[in-house]
Amino acid sequence: MNEPIFEGLSLAEIREINAEMSHYENKTAVSIEALKIVQKHRRWVSDQCLIAVAELLDISPAQLEGVATFYNLIYRQPVGKTVIHYCNSVTCWMLGSDQVGESLCRHLNVELGEMSADGEYTVLPIVCLGACDHAPVVMVGNELKFDITEDAVNEILGR
């Protein structure tokens, strides 16, 4: 039963992707959603998964890659268990987001986009998270954290 039908995707992923299809006029429309579903299960989209999704949606891998590489929330490289997005847009920048980013990277000993040695974290900049009244802001996984200070960084990283 748990046999993957398309090499590279689990049955659960296929089910979720297929479920999305009913909401749109055609399969292509599910492209982004499908990539996000894969990502939900595996954190990132490998070549193999991308090819499998393309096959499921009846489009070419190149077409899907064209979509995948357009959007910044689709990761085509491995990322840590938790992705920490720190906002680097104007208000947060004014209130110190550069330092927040630096501090996160320094604590984890990584460059932006790199996975921490323990596979736990990846730090990425992101555009305005719509919480400028609490700048600087970071998003840890799916959760927004407000008014970030050096202490807050430590807290986020559990140190």
């Binding site: 489009i59 190149a62 077409q63």
Partner: peptide, 18 residues
């Protein structure tokens, strides 16, 4: 054709194959 596409965005658009 299906195998030539545009990848990436802003001034880093790339026209090629998968």
């Amino acid at each position: 054709g299906k195998d030539l596409q545009v990848f990436g965005m802003h001034n880093n658009v790339y026209f090629g194959r998968f």
